[in-house]
Design a protein around this nucleic acid. Sequence first.
DNA 1: GAGTTTGAAACT
DNA 2: CAGTTTCAAACTC
Length: 464
Amino acid sequence: MSCLKEQNQRSLDNGSETSAVYSSENYVRHLRTLDVNIDSGDHTDFSVPGVMPHGSGGEWSGYSREAGSSRMDHHCTNYRFYPPPHDAEPSLPQYQFATHGDFVLPQSSPFHLMNPSLANNSHLSSLGGQWSSEGPVHSNMLSGEIYDAVASICPDSKDDHGPESYRKQETMAELMPQNQMDISQSANGPLTVYLQHLDHQLGENATLLSPTCPLLACLPLGPTTASFPPTIWSSLVLLALDTATTTCLHPTFHSLSGSLWDSKSKKPCNCTKSQCLKLYCDCFANGDVCSNCNCINCCNNNEHESERYKAIKICLDRNPEAFRPKIGNGKLGEIKGRHNKGCNCKRSGCLKNYCECYEAKIMCSSTCKCVGCRNYEDSPERKTMVWDSPDTTFYKKAKCDKDKCPLSCITLDVVEATCGCLLAQAEEAEKEGYTLCQAEKMILEEFGQCLTQIVRSIFKSTSS
DNA sequence: GAGTTTGAAACT
DNA sequence: CAGTTTCAAACTC
């Protein structure tokens, strides 16, 4: 958080940057944007989460006069790139395709990331680094939104630089002429990233247009893709940056995907035949690399990056949403706590962990195609299993001695009431037309109030 | 721990 | 797109 605050303050101090910082929750949006900040039209700040700063694996050179100027603490990976000198000869395609950007950056980004593929000289290598799901990352998320979010965390940052000053900066950035930045890499030829100003916002259902990279071509824009795990996004960005049409892969680059993402809680897999490169493998499906697993012939690791990225590509070709969380919180408007695809159980009654809904501790919904489902709200079996049976795994972990455990106060009614409050807030926010960020803030505040009430009740009941 | 059951993913 | 096969996790004994 200090990093976030610090960066925010630095932006304020500079008074000319559009950069913003946000928490890990927005890492994906960040990655999609390949953060670009205009600074006096002189240089560009470019940060790729997961890419280690200069000197940590990624060697950047060329036009970058101050490549890898790491301006933040170890959580934040920033690069500062400068545009080519005016007298520099532009490499072939950058102007030719200036109006046909291949890779479309997200709605919030005023920039295009152009596909430099036709330059036929793009390489990406030795971008060592690891993901961290913790800590803030550097982004070009709309600064006004960031302002609101940051202000709620760091009230003292609100003083002299209200949202207006941020928004002014955004406007300035948006008014900048086309920005094309050449990021070159000495070892294996130049890596060129072309940034083009977008003078219009993309519709939510826009599609990445990439004639040379089918992987990206099949990815829908919008919150759908925003919910990929960071390791998947790291792959996508690498694939986007690298341009070989057939493979979208560079054989030599080192992984960004050594995953700190979820290594703490990850369950070891036991795959024997899939090489952990199919969605059968939970690690792979979750975007993790295998570690401390019991798998055989595993290729879901840093030693088999090329295979891994190819496998990711295959999965995404088959289903662009393959790495999206199955439980609905990926798409805007999705109902949280609902299986996106629904289950297809036939024999388990959806009351065993074979059922993905049951396993996720949610009820089956109209999306499910299950037969003989008993995992619905009024199901007597479910009620029995949830609250009474000592064998059920549903709440087994939460089960505790009523006399000793204050969590016993959190009954189904309490949970339902809390959810109701949160939903009401969401509806209110929607009705009032608040931004997503504001809505999230409202809901979180509501959740905080609910928790406060619950805690108070617990203290009351335990003290009496 | 071995064998069986289950349903998602992959394949045809 | 439906039917079949493969796969790994969940479950049972």
